[in-house]
Amino acid sequence: MVSLEQVERSYTTGPEPVRALRGVSVGFERGSFTAVMGPSGSGKSTLLQCAAGLDRPDAGAVRIDGVDLGALDEKRLTELRRDHVGFVFQQFNLLAALTAEQNVGLPFRLAGRRPDRAAVRAALEQVGLGERLTHLPSQLSGGQQQRVAIARALVTRPKVLFADEPTGALDSSSGRAVLRLLRGLVDEAAQTTVMVTHDPTAAAHADRVLFLADGRLVDELAAPSAEAVAARMTALETAK
């Protein structure tokens, strides 16, 4: 569903450029759940942003469902992201004055279309909030707000869902509920999902874990357990 081929990305934040990604090649299969981990500054978020078309690499190719993002102008890239990519952030980014239903309908309004009420309600039902349509974010728990954010990301039926630390702002109970939801979307709806996380327990919900260090893919773990993920992360941190 998503592939990166020899992707390079650098940033200039001081006297010397920072190489965030160094020749990264990786694929994400349709209907799979992949976690991305690594020490601070390893390039995790940059990888996610390049894969989602939120950031353009300096070199290499990124494809979503066979479409080369580098061949698209900004208008077509925006349309592809809007129609085929869902993104969930650590902070929920809900508009405080809008209800859950209105927040989930925002992608339609941003595309200049009237919200599809049936699709909006179906997305909220999918995340277990069908009874909270008229609630404002302030009337919802943190876990419920993140589920609204996930419903908003799902309402356009994206080909791939990217999640950047989706449980980072949640307590452990709410975090587990969100992870069960993401796992269920993969198992029941074959939703391709890529998640950046620092939490071995969260990563253990994925089918595989990719490990980054200094902008390079350095390891991979299939059918991960939290203990195995934690041991790999400790080894990476010790090697720094």
Rank of each mutant, 00 (worst) to 15 (best):
E8H: 15
R9Q: 13
R9N: 00
T12D: 07
T12C: 05
G14W: 09
E16V: 11
P17H: 14
P17F: 12
V18P: 04
G23H: 01
G23E: 02
V24G: 07
V24C: 09
S25E: 06
S25D: 05
V26P: 03
G27Q: 13
E29T: 06
R30L: 05
R30D: 08
S32M: 03
F33C: 02
T34E: 05
V36H: 01
M37P: 01
M37W: 08
G38S: 07
P39K: 11
P39S: 12
S40P: 15
S42E: 00
S45H: 04
A51S: 13
L54T: 00
L54H: 01
D58W: 06
G60F: 05
A61T: 14
R63N: 12
I64C: 14
I64M: 13
I64Y: 01
V67C: 13
A71D: 09
E74D: 15
E74G: 08
L77R: 14
T78C: 10
R81P: 04
G86Q: 03
F87M: 15
F87I: 08
V88L: 07
V88G: 03
Q90N: 14
Q90K: 15
L95D: 02
A96T: 04
G105E: 01
L106N: 10
L106T: 03
L110S: 04
L110F: 10
A111Q: 09
G112K: 05
A118E: 15
A118Y: 00
V120D: 08
V120Q: 08
L124I: 03
